[in-house]
Every structure is written in structure tokens, then in C-alpha cells.
């Protein structure tokens, strides 16, 4: 079983996932170098599926590349570009190469990308895709055709705790958990109160025991990416006070680091949170400093010794 699957089974240890950089050309060695900053801290990393509706090397190819350089992949599967037949083929194809972790997303619309004229597919939606992956895991295609042996899959999903309808987001997360999601990577959230309410609702109803809740952290280096996310990434709202805090600081890069550190500390302080999903936009060796400040040891140490990070619950 995958390391992520084992951690989920054990039920009470810190989990760190990360967003792997996309691949646009180059060799495996180039890619290994790109992964080197974040990978040592992560239990598994996302092999993304045409992020923000931009074409890149495919999710399956990326997952296989990651395995070849010793990084455990989480195969992202979105609903935007492929119908249910192709989605099943991708999951089964990746499973053939030993990829077990699957993260099911609805996906950004084509209009979020650089080819907005493309046809959008959305044959399935996110919750349906989770259930579909669950069917594969149970040994059958959607058609009912048998798969023997069934692939060993560790199924997860995403949710945005910070956008509307706010009171409904935890219910939607619960729907995904009931459909078979065992981990939930959250969208980056710049409203701590919203993240708290979302996690508390899932925790109060026992859903955080069945599913690892992993809030996203985006390590930014200045106000630019904050402004970009606010204006250009659907579903992300960055309050003006957060942007000006970083923009107006004497040392923006350091202020941005402190913001990210506080976000991590806040997320990890919430009962029901199992770990973090990290994205590194700084690319300046800050990940080691961040993990050291949080008291998170590298994966290799967490693997070989007891994973003793004190979670809030």
C-alpha cells in the first residue's frame, strides 16, 4: 500500500502532501531537480491534471515520472477534459504502474486557462468521480465489468472551505467523504474564520476521523501572487488587509514568510486537521525553514522514527 494509505490507516499521524511543479518539457533529471525543494518534506505529492486549465505533461505521465525519482504521487483526476471512459482508463493505467493515490476534482473551467475556446467535458462531477474511483477499487468498471484483481486505490478529493455557499461547504465535503474520499485537500483560504467553521463542522460530526483534512498553504514571496490569486483564481478571496500587510512591509519577502507560517500554525491548531497540503511559489529554500519552524521533521525521519508531531486533536 502507498505511504499515504498507510498513514490514513494508522489514523493519528501528521500527513504532509505537496503540489508538484508542472512539467513543460525537459528531462527526468530536470524534473527531479525541480522536485528537490519540496519533496523531502512530503509524504506524497500531487501529479496535477492540467492545472488551471493549462495543458502540461499529463497527470499519468507525471505520476510515473515522480515514482521514478522516488516521490510518491497522488494522481489528480479532473472532470473538465475527459469523459468517464477516459477517466477510468487513466486511473487503471496509473494503477498498472503502481500509482494508488487518486485525488478527484471537478476542475477549473476551460475559461480559466489559456485555451478558453476548448470544449469543456464535465461528463462526471467531482462527487461522482469519487464514487467511480470507489467502484474501480471494489473491482468493477462503471459498466459493471469485473476487474480482477481490483486496483488498490487510496481515494481523496478537494473542497473549498472559503467560498459560497459558506454554510453548505462542510456538507459538500461530507458528501464526498460518504462517496469514498479518505483525504481532503482544501483550497487555500485567507479567511481563518471560514476555515475554522468548516473544519469544526466536520470534526463535530466525526468526519475528520474518517477522512484526513489537509488545509492548503501557498508559500508566497510577496504581494504579487496574493493579488494574482485574488483577481484571477476563481474561488479565492484574499482580503485587502492581507495583501497590504505584505505589500507595505519593509521586507515583503519576510512578511510573506511570516504570513505563511501563521497560516500553517493556525491550520495545525484546529482539532480535526491531520496535516497540510503545501504549494511552494517562493522557490528560495524556504520550505526547510518553514518545516523547522513548525517542528515538522523531513519525511525520511518521520518514516524511520515514530511520527511524533503533536496534532491538535
Amino acid at each position: 500500500m502507498s505511504r499515504l494509505g498507510e498513514l490514513l490507516d494508522r489514523g493519528n499521524e501528521l500527513i504532509i502532501t505537496g503540489e508538484a511543479p508542472v512539467i513543460d518539457g525537459g528531462t527526468l533529471a530536470d524534473y527531479e531537480a525541480k522536485l528537490a525543494e519540496l519533496a523531502p518534506w512530503c509524504d506524497a505529492m500531487n501529479a496535477t491534471d492540467n492545472t488551471s486549465a493549462h495543458a502540461h505533461a499529463s497527470n499519468v505521465a507525471m505520476a510515473i515520472a515522480m515514482q521514478r525519482v522516488g516521490v510518491e504521487p497522488i494522481l489528480q483526476v479532473v472532470c473538465r477534459d475527459k469523459n468517464r471512459i477516459a477517466q477510468q482508463a487513466d486511473i487503471m493505467g496509473a494503477a498498472l504502474h503502481g500509482v494508488e493515490n487518486i485525488c478527484c476534482l471537478t476542475g477549473d473551467d476551460v475559461t480559466a486557462g489559456d485555451e478558453p475556446e476548448a470544449r469543456r467535458v464535465f461528463d462526471l462531477d467531482g462527487p461522482q468521480l469519487i464514487r467511480l474511483a470507489n467502484s474501480l477499487k471494489e473491482g468493477r468498471y462503471l459498466s459493471g465489468r469485473k476487474i480482477d484483481p481490483a486496483p488498490s486505490l487510496v481515494i481523496g478529493a478537494v473542497e473549498n472551505p472559503a467560498t459560497h455557499p459558506l454554510d453548505y461547504r462542510a456538507q459538500r465535503a461530507a458528501k464526498k467523504i460518504l462517496a469514498g474520499a479518505r483525504f481532503l485537500q482544501l483550497q487555500i483560504c485567507y479567511h481563518p474564520d471560514r476555515l475554522e467553521a468548516f473544519v469544526a463542522a466536520l470534526h463535530a460530526n466525526g468526519f475528520s476521523k474518517r477522512c484526513a483534512i489537509l488545509p492548503s498553504i501557498v508559500a508566497v514571496k510577496g504581494a504579487g501572487p496574493l493579488k494574482f490569486m485574488h483577481s484571477s483564481v476563481p474561488g479565492i478571496d484574499v482580503p485587502a488587509a492581507v495583501i497590504s500587510r505584505v505589500a507595505d512591509a519593509a521586507d515583503s519577502a519576510e512578511e510573506a514568510y511570516q504570513l505563511v507560517l501563521e497560516q500553517c500554525q493556525h491550520a495545525l491548531s484546529l482539532p480535526g486537521v491531520r496535516g497540510l497540503h503545501l504549494t511552494d511559489f517562493r522557490k528560495d529554500s524556504s520550505m526547510g525553514r518553514l518545516c523547522a519552524d513548525l517542528g515538522i521533521r523531513p519525511r525520511s525521519e518521520r518514516e524511520s522514527r515514530a511520527n511524533d508531531f503533536a496534532l491538535a486533536n
Partner: peptide, 18 residues
Amino acid sequence: KTLRNGPCGGVREDGNCE
């Protein structure tokens, strides 16, 4: 996106469509 199981994560801060 013809979603039948709830809103995607792209809903805007004003509650409008991505």
C-alpha cells in the same frame, strides 16, 4: 459545468459563477 452534486470551488466572492 452541468454539475449535479453541488457547487464547484470556483464560486466568486459575490456568489456569482466562475
